[in-house]
Design a protein around this nucleic acid. Sequence first.
DNA 1: ATCATGATATCGCAATCCGATATCGATATA
DNA 2: TATATCGATATCGGATTGCGATATCATGAT
Lengths: 98, 98
Amino acid sequence: MIREFFLGFIKIHTLYHASKGGICGIEIIKELKRHGYAVSPGTLYPTLHALERDGYLKSRMLVIHGKRRRYYKATKKGISVLKKSRERLRELVEEVME
Amino acid sequence: MIREFFLGFIKIHTLYHASKGGICGIEIIKELKRHGYAVSPGTLYPTLHALERDGYLKSRMLVIHGKRRRYYKATKKGISVLKKSRERLRELVEEVME
DNA sequence: ATCATGATATCGCAATCCGATATCGATATA
DNA sequence: TATATCGATATCGGATTGCGATATCATGAT
């Protein structure tokens, strides 16, 4: 049940970090794991691709410690969507929080 | 983007009302519409069936104003899941709200 | 050159979304 | 009694998504 929300939070979370210095797939997976949530690569990477395809993220390959990592930064569109999503989210949550 | 959260809220919303006196499909559709969200019958009814199949809701047919309506009440399991979901949800939201 | 490793990408099946359509039963009308 | 109408629920089918498992791929080490 809470899983459905969580899947949405992956996107907001990603946008949030991508709006502050950039983030890559493996970092997201590890960070979410610290918070107690598991997300598989088969879920995450297609999600990142979709966010980029839709113009919310822009990526480039970097080599860190000899490993290729695709780092994502939020676009203007991405930042604007992040803001709006947070507002709507707050409304929806207050609705069910009594 | 926000749509994903919304689809989760349909369930929590339903559980919430089902835990306080019962609710039926058409009422959910209308109430969500008041809040500015559209949910089609093809989405809602299978969702209700799944919630009942999984033991969160219990339904019975009533005749109201000469019309058949299937009213749902939350089970103990449903109420317990509702509580837990709200807690986890609150955590997740605070995480991205900065 | 080859290998091991970490990271990303993709495959395939199952589940979900949702517009459109069908069904169903109760009342009104005749 | 028959049937027409209407509100509400149920289902169909194509597109999309979730995700475990697997493949790919570039880099640094041996």
